[in-house]
């Protein structure tokens, strides 16, 4: 095995950026797991909706396909992110209403949720593949931002999109941490994650908290989706699949149900898969990412930080 140490810097930067995006998606998996104790396998579709919505609103409706600069750039970027977040958030709430709540009302078995989630995911994903929506091919995302070098670290370039990703994700993570640990909604999410019966006996409105959890997890997934679309320059109907599976892996890696674990797991997974390229070549990166999951499950089944939602 010969390692190309010259790739260390660039793969580190790339891994970090992708890791930040995984972290943001992983939050959705981990939060829903916290309150419902089930993996929301439709979160990949929820993710996809965000980028696609930004593509439609910014690119198709407003026709903003040329690069912006200065204040205009900031405004349009905020718009892209907020549209992505709101669209995925709405999608997640709809998903809860259609695919999960009817089962919860009937006290369905765990397996039913899983099947329902996978069904919902396929439905949403293939709906967008239809020609009256995205169609089967890639569609280019509005080119609102030119790629320019921002600074250099470890001898590798970080461009302005990278800076956008890092800043946005850090802001989101700080906001979420605040929300979970310092607000009443956050406390009710933690309570429900720790003990459903006790939460009910304290007067927590379970249905409302579940909807809020889907909405919040979806919002961050949508922002991640907008960043992902900006970074790669296109949207496609199945764009949620790979990032979805990776983020799910990240959530398990950090400790499913644990918010800080999801952040840590996302970053680690991004770094591990990208930096494996240094020694193994890039056709191995997905293999490495998915070897990490069974290894983790064997060595430490509760993940790095264990199962708990709060700080």
């Amino acid at each position: 095995m010969d390692c190309n140490t010259g790739l260390l810097g660039p793969t580190f930067v790339q891994g970090l950026l992708l890791g930040f995006i995984y972290a943001l998606i992983a939050l959705g998996y981990t939060m829903v797991y916290g309150v419902l104790k089930l993996i929301n396998f439709a979160h990949d579709a929820v993710f996809m909706i965000g980028g696609v919505a930004a593509f439609y609103v910014i690119g198709q409706w407003f026709g903003l396909t040329d690069p912006f600069t200065g204040v205009g750039l900031i405004l349009v970027l905020v718009a892209v992110l907020v549209i992505g977040g709101l669209a995925s958030s709405g999608g997640a709430v709809l998903l809860e209403r259609a695919a999960y709540r009817p089962l919860r009302k009937r006290h369905a078995a765990r397996l039913s949720y899983l099947i329902s989630a996978i069904g919902a995911s396929f439905f949403a994903t293939y709906l967008f593949q239809q020609s009256f929506l995205l169609g089967p091919g890639k569609r280019s995302f509005p080119h609102v931002m030119t790629t320019e070098k921002a600074f250099e670290i470890f001898g590798s370039r970080v461009n302005n999109k990278g800076v956008l990703i890092i800043v946005t994700v850090i802001v989101c993570l700080v906001l979420l941490d605040r929300l979970i640990n310092q607000t009443k909604t956050g406390r009710s999410i933690r309570a429900l994650s720790e003990d459903v019966v006790a939460a009910q006996l304290m007067g927590v409105n379970v249905t409302r908290v579940i909807v809020m959890t889907f909405a919040i997890g979806g919002f961050f997934g949508g922002i991640a989706s907008a960043l992902y679309s900006l970074q790669f320059g296109n949207v496609v109907w199945n764009m949620g699949f790979i990032p979805g599976v990776k983020a799910f892996t990240a959530a398990v890696l950090g400790g499913i149900g644990n918010i800080r674990g999801a952040m840590l797991g996302g970053l680690l997974l991004g770094l591990i898969e990208n930096m494996s390229v240094v020694c193994l070549g890039n056709q191995w990166s997905d293999v490495v990412a998915f070897v990490v999951l069974p290894l983790m499950l064997i060595l430490r089944p509760t993940g790095i930080l264990g199962e708990r939602i709060g700080g």
Binding site: R190, A191, E194, D195, V197, A198, L201, R308, I309, G310
Partner: peptide, 11 residues
């Protein structure tokens, strides 16, 4: 006050 106490363990 439920049977088994149902304390929130991580609070």
């Amino acid at each position: 006050v439920p049977e088994g106490r149902h304390i929130f363990p991580n609070m």
